[in-house]
Computed example of a mutant assay.
Amino acid sequence: MGEKTSATDPLPPGLYIVAGPIGNLADLSPRAADWLRRADIIACEDTRVSATLLRAAGSDRPMTPYHDHSDERARARLLARMADRAVVLLSDAGTPLISDPGYRLVRGAHEAGITVTTAPGPCAAIAALSIAGLPSDRFLFAGFLPAKRAARTTELRTLATMPATLLFYESGPRLAAMLLDAAATLGARDAAVARELTKRHEELRRGTLGDLATHYADAPEPKGEIVVLIGPPSAAQSATAADLDTALLAALATMPAGRAAASVSAALGLPRATVYARALELKAG
């Protein structure tokens, strides 16, 4: 997108994705601050949160809410404005579209022939990965796991054989339970919990999933934004998961799920409850 050279000129019409700080206002890039001052409209999750950032950037541009609960009409109104105005999309913290529904607005802009560009910057998941000391050549960001234990465990099993470091966002009240389920489902893997990144009380705690689960089960409920990172499976863990599915598929061809799980559990020395849950998943297709 061709911008004017003068910082006082308005931005050309289009959609501008602006990454804001994840805690430290000094991390707002000069280019992002410039866009916040020159845009016609700032679309943001929470105008009260964004007002602090706009003041720091010296911006007095009007704001309009755009968030998880915005409907199709709100999106259509924003897209219509982009025909002759510059609209900035700003999240409460970090890079828009990471674990939020902004992609629908971006997709709509592309479909309408509207130019989309970005001022890249902070992202909690990437910041955590950069300091965790876990393999970073291949990683998968999986957002928030389900709140209920059964659904959370099912999702973890789905990711169990992924040959990559797994990244999740989590809340303080659910962290201990999530780590316990991850340790039970994924086994002894290296992991890390990053909290309050770039803020005064930034914390990174490393260890095995079991170590971290034990720590947070006994510790006071953590505060702030949290990223959980789980290292990839070892060769032995990957082989066990593959062997489990192979054995279960063979057993399910001749017997019901309960008997198949009991047989495979005994043969592989795995917990029957874990094997039975996987048998039900495979049986459901």
Rank of each mutant, 00 (worst) to 15 (best):
I126D: 05
R31Y: 03
H67R: 07
R195S: 06
P222N: 11
G113P: 08
Y103Q: 04
E281I: 14
R272I: 13
A86F: 02
A191K: 03
S6T: 15
K148R: 15
V87M: 02
R107V: 09
V227E: 08
L89H: 04
T254R: 13
I131T: 05
G94N: 06
P12W: 04
D71T: 04
A7D: 15
S263T: 15
T52E: 15
P96Y: 03
D68E: 13
A109N: 00
G102F: 01
P122A: 08
A213F: 06
T47C: 03
L79D: 06
G94Q: 03
A261E: 00
A191M: 07
A19Q: 03
A112M: 11
T254F: 10
D245Y: 08
Y16P: 01
P120L: 01
D27K: 02
T161W: 11
H69A: 08
P222E: 10
A194P: 03
V116S: 02
R174P: 03
G94K: 00
L175D: 01
S130E: 13
A176L: 05
M63R: 05
L11T: 10
D211E: 05
A150L: 13
S238G: 13
S91Q: 06
L25F: 11
N24Q: 10
D27I: 04
L268E: 08
L282P: 01
A242P: 07
L129Y: 02
G58H: 07
A119K: 02
D60P: 00
C44F: 04
G121T: 06
L140S: 13
R37C: 05
A279M: 09
G269S: 09
L166I: 00
L36P: 00
L179Q: 10
A33Y: 02
A217K: 06
R200V: 15
T185R: 00
A19W: 04
G121P: 06
T208W: 05
T161G: 15
S59R: 02
A236R: 12
R174W: 07
S50R: 05
A235H: 13
A39S: 09
L204C: 12
S59W: 01
A86R: 00
K283V: 12
L145M: 09
R200I: 15
M178K: 12
R37A: 00
D92K: 06
V228R: 11
M255I: 11
K4H: 15
R195C: 04
